[in-house]
Simulated scan of single mutants.
Amino acid sequence: MSDNASILIVEDEDKIARVLELELSFEGYTVDKASSGYEAIEKFRTEKWDVVLLDIMLPEMSGIEILRRIRKENEQVAVILLTAKDSIEDKVTGLDLGANDYMTKPFQIEELLARIRAALRLKQKPNNEIDDQWLVFSDLKLNESTREVYRGDRLIELTPREFDLLVYFMNNPRHVLTREQILETVWGFDYYGETNVVDVYVRYVRKKVDGEQDNKLINTVRGVGYVMKDAYESKK
């Protein structure tokens, strides 16, 4: 089922790297390893990769810096962060820089394999599935092809993850969306664990989209999740 996808493992702990290499090879993936930052960058630039498994804590260069360099050169390769730190700040930083997913050590290999499959499914989505139409809700409009977002005449700058989150809201106006639904759709996997990363990103998007506006479009549904609705609409 791998279609011979290629995976680069960037991990300085030999035992972990070897286990990952054996498991992924058994699943039919083409696998190589790098144990330091500079080795990872060199291998990334000299070969074509579908997925990079990237440990955050590495010698010579942090995984976050490697991710930053990868995204400067390639926005398509899927990057899954591996971290021993169970800190929401580390996860948000990585996701904000363009990581597709993260795993906190120790993790089950079955879950990692599922995350890899999900990342590959998203990567293989054909470009023609995205048209040149604007999504419009109230005075907010978004173009998926050009990635432009406007609130009235004001251009809004969003990170890739913030943009994807707003697309999901605009595709589901007036529907209450749970944190689990948002994670599964926007982050691209069935998530079992912390959901407060959603709260962090909703806060970012709401600050940029709603700002000082009287009509707040992204609203909290206490104990459930979030909903995009026009407050003025309900008063008409």
Rank of each mutant, 00 (worst) to 15 (best):
A5R: 15
I7L: 07
I7E: 06
L8W: 05
L8M: 02
I9L: 13
V10F: 04
E11K: 08
E11A: 09
R18P: 03
V19A: 13
L20S: 10
L22E: 04
L24S: 13
L24C: 10
L24V: 12
S25C: 14
F26K: 15
S36I: 00
S36G: 06
Y38C: 02
A40E: 07
I41S: 08
F44W: 06
F44E: 09
F44A: 05
E47T: 14
E47H: 14
K48S: 12
L53K: 14
L54V: 11
D55G: 06
M57F: 06
E60R: 06
G63K: 03
R71A: 08
R71E: 07
R71W: 00
E75N: 09
Q76D: 08
V77W: 05
A78R: 15
I80C: 08
L82R: 07
K85I: 11
K85E: 04
D86S: 08
I88A: 02
G94S: 10
L97Q: 11
L97D: 04
A99Y: 09
N100Q: 10
D101H: 11
Y102S: 04
P106Q: 05
F107P: 03
A114H: 12
L120A: 03
R121G: 06
R121T: 15
L122F: 08
L122D: 02
K125C: 08
N127M: 10
W134S: 12
S138V: 05
D139N: 13
L140H: 04
L140A: 01
E144T: 09
E144G: 04
E144R: 13
S145Y: 13
S145I: 02
T146S: 12
R147D: 10
E148L: 15
D153T: 13
R154I: 10
L155D: 01
L155T: 12
L158P: 06
T159R: 07
T159D: 01
D164Y: 05
L165W: 06
L166A: 00
L166W: 01
V167L: 13
F169N: 04
M170E: 05
N171Y: 01
N172F: 02
P173N: 02
Q181A: 12
L183P: 07
G188F: 13
Y191N: 13
T195N: 10
T195E: 12
R203C: 00
K207I: 03
V209F: 00
V209Y: 00
D210S: 00
D210N: 06
Q213G: 14
D214K: 15
T220L: 09
V221W: 06
V221N: 12
R222E: 12
R222C: 01
G223N: 14
G225Y: 09
V227M: 00
M228I: 14
D230R: 03
D230S: 07
S234T: 03
S234A: 11
